[in-house]
């Protein structure tokens, strides 16, 4: 089985770069999105992150501002 056509590129950023983006910005200016399950979120998450588990994402996209930078983990 070959998968190529199902993968789309997305910008990846490492923690260091993400920090320099986020530092000095208020939480209202960026979205940090946690797509893990609630149990994983509870056992540790980035401060200020919004939890929307992956299975819920298609139904709950309107909870995230489209015009702000969004960091997903």
């Amino acid at each position: 089985m070959r998968w190529k056509q199902f993968l789309t590129p997305v910008k990846s950023i490492d923690a260091e770069q993400a920090r320099s983006h986020i530092t000095g910005k208020s939480p209202a200016e960026v979205t940090i999105l946690d797509v893990r399950q609630p149990g994983e979120y509870e056992s540790g998450h980035i401060p200020g992150a919004k939890l929307i588990p992956l299975p819920d994402l298609t139904h709950r996209m309107d909870e995230i501002a489209k015009d702000k930078p969004t960091f997903v983990y």
């Binding site: 990846s12 490492d14 993400a18 995230i64 489209k66």
Partner: peptide, 27 residues
Amino acid sequence: RSRVAAQMLSGKGFSEVYNLAGGIKGW
């Protein structure tokens, strides 16, 4: 998971989406 989520958002008109490589561990 985050990579796919980021890709889904990009496809729905989100202007600036980044996948945080390494996830919470990287952070």
